[in-house]
Write a protein that binds this DNA or RNA. Sequence first.
DNA 1: TGAGTTCACTCACCCGCAAG
DNA 2: CTTGCGGGTGAGTGAACTCA
Length: 468
Amino acid sequence: MWVINVPSRHVDSSDDDAFVPDDKNPKFDDFYWSVMLELRNVKESRGWVIRNPQPRAQLKDARRMINRKCGNHINIPELVTMGIALHDDPEPVATAQEMEAFKICTAPEDIEKYLKAWGTILHHVPFMPALMPNLTISPYGVVLLGAFLDAHARFACSDDLGMLRYDAMLYIEEVRLDGTIIRYQAGCNKMLRGFKDLATACLLTPRRLRDDFDAIAKLFCCNVREGTTRIKSRDYPSFMYPEDGYKKGRSDYGLCRGPFLVRCFRHIFTGKRNATVSACVGLKGGPRPVAELNKMSEVTPENIGYVAVLARFILNDQDAWHVDDNKFNSADFYNSLIHLFSNAEWCASTLKWWNEEVFENNGSDSDDEDDGDNMYMRILAQRATREAAIEEHRCGEEMAQRALEDQIHYAGENSDEDRGDNGTSGKEDAWDHDSGAEDDSDKDMQELDYPEDGEEERDELDDLPEWF
DNA sequence: TGAGTTCACTCACCCGCAAG
DNA sequence: CTTGCGGGTGAGTGAACTCA
């Protein structure tokens, strides 16, 4: 049993850094004082200098960015516990797997995800390493820190969802089907979205099933509502693709480049006013948006995954947020999407496109900028490709085993549709793509390039020596 | 004409409340 | 207790305005 020794709130007023009560934040006053005193204790005992902004603000900022940078399925108290326990551990993954406390999170990729999230906290809270000696011997401090950070998760989630809830509906484009025009009509009533509204249904329909939707949209919606047509977490919806940017034999072509997704991304990261126009156009006052505040200059797969999960929730008719609503598991959706980025070529192509779309960061503004066409870059790219191929091969058997388990799991619900064009729905697709499986669809995929900039890389792959 | 001030706009952040 | 909603607040920014 822990002996919780709550520190006294008395602060010597003679101290230059005496704490000031936060009258505007009474609800978290206990957290505030306790965390501040924890910081103070460390500061006093080790002479650590805490620079502006104040620790409280740094911690809150860090927490708000965890979701945006690492996805919205992080258990914060668990993250804090793990981060502190594994801090400075030379082999954190192995250690975590051996620890009883982390039994529920033993997969290396899960542990690495948490360690990455912890890295985000360390990045935003420079004084955090100085807390480690204290926190490693203070269970109370760990619980407090976790609770404090977790409390602000509600605000972050609520704000981002609230921002998109109505404004995102303005980003839905009209779709013409055989002369009829589909427009968003559900208005402000979220309960009427999803497959009750043709416009949101069009965006939510798995891209591989769009032909069915386009044929008789109302019947398709009816089938989804009645459960005749099932939509799974790894069936990437149409809003993830450009309207005319999908190739049946190459399901990752155009994936993550849907205009609705981009606008939602811009809305959250570069501000509402930049959602439909390029950043820096027509700026008129206002504070800096999230991307600027956090010095984001590049889009990451986690950013895209985070927005994709939010966008999907905004479009559906769910009244409340659930990670798993028995129909759609957002964590599975997110994780499968992030896993697709493990393909180095597709990842580079997609992120380059995103960086140009969001930050106009195409590296061509200056003559000094490297356009990537040099031996150094080629060697790096070739090495990365080889390492990725080796890694994917190593993972192949493990993934195949998982795919088999999934197949068994979905045995009762997977119908004939999955045996056909199911390019976007299962992890076996992504993994087969990466590992070079020998079915026809993958051969097609290897023969096609990604939008815009895949040509050169493909030629280089063709030129690889036999030992590769 | 240029410096200083005011205003409008935008956004991040926070919290009370209601519903489940 | 959790979650979403709506409103309030404070702050940063650029444009418009005022005045010496």
